[in-house]
Every structure is written in C-alpha cells, then in structure tokens.
Design a protein around this nucleic acid. Structure first.
Lengths: 208, 208, 208, 208
DNA sequence: AATGAATGAGTGTTCATTCAT
DNA sequence: CATGAATGAACACTCATTCAT
C-alpha cells in the first residue's frame, strides 16, 4: 500500500508522535506541534482537518504494515513455540522501536471518550488475535500446548508486561541500574523479552 | 496516619478521581471538577494550591493504606505459592475496586512530564517490590520456587496483564460477551485472576 | 422589574449595542467589543456565556420596558385616532432614540439562522400587535375606523416606513439636505412621523 | 448592456446570492461559496478580486434591468393611480421573486461600514425616485393627487411595508397561518400588495 | 475561612487572501 | 488561465490561577 501522506504531512505526523507520546494528546497543543515542526499553526487543520483526525492519521500511518509482518511469521516453517517466541520478539521489538505511537495508543484509545473513534484500530487488534489463535491452535493440534488456554488473555500478558515495564521506565532504570538508553534497550531486548517468552511458554506447556 | 483532608477536600478528591479516570488529567478542567462537586472554582486552588498538587493529594489519599494490607499478608502462615496467589488477588481486587485512581496513576505518572513529581509514589512501588521479594525468597528457601527468577519483572506481568485487559475493556467486553458491568467484574475476579495466578505459578515453578 | 445586570455588564451591553448596530452581529467580534469597552476579552463569555447570549441579553435589556409604555397608552382617555397617532409617535421616538437595538433586531432576528432563538422577542411582537388591535377595535366600535382593515399589516407599514427611511439614512440625508444629526432627528420627529400618521389615518378612515 | 460575467462567474454569483441572503455577508465565508458552487476557494478572489467586490458585482448583476422595466411603465397610457398600483406590483413582484438580492441590499448596504461602497446602488435609488416623481407629478397635474405629498417618503412606505413583513416572515407565517411557501407567496401577491396599494392610494388622494 | 469577580494566556479552528506553478 | 498549497491573522471560547473582600 502506497502511503497517502506527503512529506509535510509526514513531518507533522512525526512531530505529533513525539509530543503526544511525551505529553499526551490533551497535553499537546497544535501550537506545540506547529512550533516544533516549524510549520504554520493552520497547517494541522489544513492537512488533517482537526487535531483528533491528526491522531487517527497517526495511528494509520504507524500501524499499517504490522499485519504484513504477522502474516509472514505465520507462514514460517518452524515449531509453534518458536513462532510464539518470534511473535513476542516481533511485538516487543516493534513497540520498543515505535515507542511513541504505542504509548499513544495505550493512553488515548482506552478512555471511553475516544474508544469508538478508531474502527481501524479495533480491526488491528482483532487481526493480531487471529494470528495468535492460529499459532496456538497449531501447537494444540501438535499436542505440545495445553488445551485449556484462554487465548485472548495471552496478549494482555505479553503486551501488558512490556507496557508496565516501559511505563515505569524511570523506576526500573533506577532499580536495575540501566543508566543509558542503550543499556535500557538492551535489557528490554534480552532480559525482558526472555522473561515474557518464559512466562508464556510456562503457561502454554506446563500443568498447573 | 491520620487523614489530613477535611470533608470538602475529600468531596473534591473523589470527584477529581472520577473525572481524571474518565477523561485524563489534561482532559479534565478545574471547572469540570468544581461543577461536578458543586463547589466554587477557586476552591481547588485554595485547598490544594494547584491542579497538579490536587493530583498528588489524590494519590496520597488513595494509596495510604495499601502498605498495611501488604504487611498483613506477609505475616500470614500459609505456603509461599498461596501468598503469591493472595497477593495477586489483593492487587487485582484493589485495582478493580479503585479503578479510578490506578488508571490515573497508570496514565499520568508515566509520562516524562510528570514522572519526577511524586516521590511518594516511587516509594510505594519500592515497598510493593520489597513485599514481593520477601515472599519469593521465602519460597526459594523452601525450595518450591526456582532460583533464577528476575523478581522485579514479576510485577509488570501481574499488573501489566490486568491493566492491558482493563485498558482494552471495550474490546474484551465485545470479544468475550461481557455485556454488563457485573459480568465484566466477575470475569476479572475469576478468569483473569486465575489466568494471572497460573501464569505466575508456571513461571515460578516449572523448568524452562 | 429590577435590572439584573451590573455596571460592567451594562457597559458591555451598551458597547455591543453600538457595534452590532454599526457592523452587524457577525461583523462584530468579541475583541472589538472588549477593546471598545476597555474590558478583558474573557469578560463577555464570563458575563454572558457566549456572544449569542450577549445578543439575547441585549434584547432583554433594551425592550423590557416597552410593554409598560404601551399599556399606559391604552388606558389614556383620548380618541382612537389620537391613540394611533400617539402609538406611532411612541414607536418612532423609541426606535429613533434606541436606534441601535432596533436596527439589530431588524437585522439579526429575521434570518432563518436566528429566528427561533428569541422566544421573548416573538412574545414582544405579539404583545405589540395585541395593543394595536385593542385600539383599532375600539375605533371600529365607535364607527370611526373602517371595518375591513387587516390589522397585522398596519405594523409593517408603520415600522417598515420608518426603518426603510432610517436604513437609507445617507441617501435621505443627501436628498433632503439633512446635514446634521439634529436636522435628521428633527425631520424624523416632524415630517416622517407626520407622514406615517397621515398614511395610517388615510388607510383607517377613507374609503377605497 | 451586455453582461460581462462568464458562466463560472455567474455560477459563483448565484450561489453567493443564496448564501448571503440566508446567512448575511459576514456570516458567509468564501469557503461556503466555493464548496456550494463546487469551485476552488481561490476562484472568488481570482474572478472578483475580493469578497467585498463579489458583493458589488452581485448587485450590478441583479439590478441592471430594473431601470428598463420602470421606463416601460412610465410610457404606458393608463391613469396615474393605475401606474402607481402597477409600480407597487412591479416592486413587490420583483423583490419577492429576487428575494435574495433585495434582502442582501437591505441588510448589507445600510450599515455605516458599507454605505459608501456602492455608488451604482445610490444611482439606482435616485432613478427609482425620479420615476415615482414623474408619475405623481402627472397625477397632480391631472388634479387627482393631492399636492402636499412628500414624494421621497412614499418609497419607504411601499418598500418598508413589504420588507418589514418579509423580515418577520416566521412571525406572520405563524400569525396568518401561511403554512406553505405557496400560501405565503400568494398572500404577498394578493393581500399584502393590495394593502400597500390601498395605503398609498389613501395617502395620495384623501384629505387629512 | 471561603468565594465571586476577574484576568492574561492559551485553546482548536476558520478566515480571506496570496502565490508558485 | 486556473488552482492547490499555504499562510498570518483573527475567531469564539476556556484555561488555571489570583485577589480583594
């Protein structure tokens, strides 16, 4: 799919992403965005119609290629548990790289106020769940995963663990002595990812 | 600790809690609060100094007795795994009952903008972690828990799972057919709690 | 009835009256009013809620005592034709003195956009019509007025003639050589008033 | 006079007429016009120079043939009073048919802000007055009209009555039970026209 | 101790117009 | 000749806070 956003729109979207992530949607003013992006205040309304629709555009802009990545993963010829591990890695890597947008999604699309706004976003979540179901059912057929799994609760554990860690970044930076951004990122990519993979594996495989 | 808030302050705090939870801190105006609480607009500044300090007061007001509950749990004479299960139950029950404040905490104290504001809140988190460490170390000594656990990552899994579920309430209500508030609450108290307990148990006990 | 407007509100109302009359409602900005009245821009919203409601308040402020004047006239012990003449004089004098508000009424409350807004204003018009009907029916009973009068069309002739004259002030000032405001006002009070009185008298009395 | 407006200009003029009549000049934006007329926003400035000059063009476009109609009337071989009646009918019919433009004229060219703008419009009014004078002087010479008439005040009575009625359309629709546009138009063409004709006749003929 | 009045700064949005192409 | 892109200024309105009483 070809992006429908032009250069200036992308510039605005990226500045908006940063600011929304830092200060929240309501905490960011169009003037903030305009100043940071060095564009005229009127441009946001001009290009996106409204601040609200800028947010929607931002979600579309950032999530449009996730589905493709998931589909590719599903087709790989590897064991189910490895698919799960790769899926976790993919999620965490994606979110950690695009921290901004996922933080925004996490914040802004959970309040009653905005929940109904983004049909596209709800569809994304359904698609993600479908992919996960496919993998787990494959594992169940092969007899390696337990059969009494509540699949929709897996995603909250994967994403929730990461988000809670990330949302409390300053706390964990301090606690785990992750003084630089690199140390933090490295911890996420190794220890945190591994923790989540272990957790999910334990849940999927071992008796309780 | 004796509460230092008078009746009117408490009235304001409770209205603020509801509104902050519904619309976020920036999305809630002092006017909203004043109108809802049927008090004068100047009262908020008068009683709390500023909107920001109202938020801080709110955190203090709502979290001051959590520590006590945790301490009591630690002293109970039951198996470590049961303590963990009770801890999970306590957390989820507390958060689910006081959704407002935890949602606020989750939202407002994770952004760069406000992270440094609440020393007290950081202390709370450290205290919580200490309690969890105590239980797990007890289980490790007794030989029932694995020794290679990264304890600080347990909390993100417990709380993150719950939060992610709760943040996507509309999505899961729809997906799991939880049409009423009662059905939703019941699902949280049974299925979701059990899912988290199983997850943590699997993680703490089984080899990987 | 005691006015419910305080000094500052009255100050705003009077400035608004002048500006709305000169430039129309849409042509006048809250900034214009604030600047002219030397008050803060926020005061208009603060005192009246919105620009629209400022206009409503203005109508109420200026028309609230007209009914009383009409009632007094009805009770006078004079001939019907003299009552009509006095009514015309009263109308013209009132409108000419309060040109601003009547110009505004004439302009702003005739467009579809705002017609329904002011119930009070519609009631005023009904009351005026009632008074006129009372006088004319009295004259008809006394046998001095013709019986085939369409009473509701009298008001358009009285007010319409005046308004059309007034709306084309510059044209008539030039045509009739009314170089000063005094000359203009005098012409209205004598010649124009007399013209309208003659017109209505001729209509009410003579056969066609 | 050959129209100097091309098709696109005429399209813009006609949309502008409708919108100006409905919402006033200041209440109508170039965007409104462009959208309604399905043309580019820049077209208005491009074709007419500015929004103000679009209004002027509109007046010219719509009033350019009135003079001709009046001249024809003057040359008819009928009694003066019949000429007056025909003149009234002509005016009301014209205005009622082209309500849009006359409403605009009535609204926009009477405020201080714009009065001086349209020389052409002032000339139109002078021409109209000349025609009326010609008819009345003819009647006076024939001895059928009174000699003490202030001719310039006749027009305000004719047009003013109609306008006041029309400006209070909703009020009279309700009062006179004119539920459909047809009923309203019919009332204007019969009752209102007749009322004005009677009024002017009474004024021109009967002693006071 | 409590509050109504008031304010300057800021909000998102729309305005008429310009200009490069 | 025509227009999409762009803009600075202005719009009505709301903000958190202050202050005299």
């Amino acid at each position: 799919m070809k992006s429908t956003f032009n250069d200036k729109q992308i510039q605005i979207l990226e500045v908006a992403e940063t600011l929304f992530a830092e200060k929240g949607f309501d905490g960011t003013s169009i003037r903030n965005i305009a100043k940071e992006a060095k564009i005229n205040i009127a441009m946001v309304s001009y290009y996106f119609g409204s601040k609200e629709r800028l947010l929607e555009s931002l979600i579309v802009y950032r999530t449009s290629d996730l589905k493709k990545q998931l589909d590719n993963l599903l087709l790989e010829d590897i064991e189910p548990i490895d698919k799960i591990n790769k899926l976790i890695e993919l999620y965490i890597n994606r979110i950690n790289t695009n921290r901004g947008i996922y933080r925004i999604i996490h914040f802004e699309f959970t309040s009653k106020k905005r929940e109904q706004n983004l049909h596209a976003f709800s569809e994304l979540k359904k698609g993600n769940l479908k992919s996960l179901e496919a993998i787990i059912e494959e594992g169940q057929k092969k007899g390696v995963f337990r059969k009494d799994i509540i699949i929709p609760l897996i995603t909250p554990t994967i994403l929730g663990t990461f988000f809670h860690f990330h949302m409390n970044k300053p706390f964990f930076e301090n606690l785990l002595n992750l003084k630089t951004e690199d140390l933090y990122n490295n911890y996420v990519k190794t220890n945190l990812t591994k923790h989540i993979q272990q957790t999910i594996k334990a849940l999927l495989i071992y008796e309780n």
